[in-house]
Amino acid sequence: MAIDISFIGDKDDYTYEDGEGVEYRYVINDNGTLAIFEKEEGGHLAGNAEPVAVYGPAAWFSVRGNARSKKDTPPARIRSF
């Protein structure tokens, strides 16, 4: 699912479109910023992944699409003895 962002003062939404092996996820941070992440289709997002875009709390009004979830985190690695 694509991510649609409504910006304050804009009539048109901005869309991050999934396709060509890329999926987008968003996170709303505690400080109100909106971070957009890009991942390979079927892949995972590392915990330290850098966002492709960050919008300040005064810039955006609403967001629709897939939020980043535990399903996007790679499985834990088990070390052998």
Rank of each mutant, 00 (worst) to 15 (best):
2 A>G: 06
2 A>Y: 01
3 I>P: 01
5 I>Q: 02
5 I>L: 03
5 I>W: 01
7 F>T: 10
8 I>H: 05
8 I>W: 07
9 G>K: 04
10 D>P: 00
12 D>E: 15
13 D>L: 04
14 Y>W: 07
15 T>K: 12
15 T>Q: 13
16 Y>K: 02
17 E>G: 00
17 E>D: 07
19 G>M: 08
20 E>H: 09
20 E>R: 09
20 E>C: 01
22 V>T: 12
22 V>P: 00
23 E>S: 11
23 E>V: 15
25 R>L: 03
25 R>S: 04
25 R>A: 06
26 Y>D: 03
28 I>K: 14
28 I>M: 08
29 N>E: 15
30 D>K: 11
31 N>T: 09
31 N>E: 14
33 T>G: 04
33 T>H: 12
34 L>P: 05
35 A>Y: 00
36 I>T: 12
36 I>Q: 10
38 E>M: 08
38 E>A: 09
39 K>H: 05
40 E>Q: 14
41 E>I: 00
42 G>E: 11
45 L>W: 08
46 A>I: 02
46 A>W: 12
48 N>W: 13
51 P>K: 05
52 V>T: 14
52 V>R: 12
59 A>N: 08
60 W>C: 09
60 W>V: 02
61 F>W: 09
63 V>L: 07
66 N>K: 15
67 A>K: 15
68 R>D: 05
68 R>H: 12
69 S>Q: 06
69 S>C: 04
69 S>Y: 06
70 K>I: 15
70 K>C: 04
73 T>M: 04
75 P>S: 10
75 P>N: 11
76 A>Y: 01
76 A>D: 09
76 A>H: 03
78 I>Q: 13
80 S>M: 07
81 F>E: 10
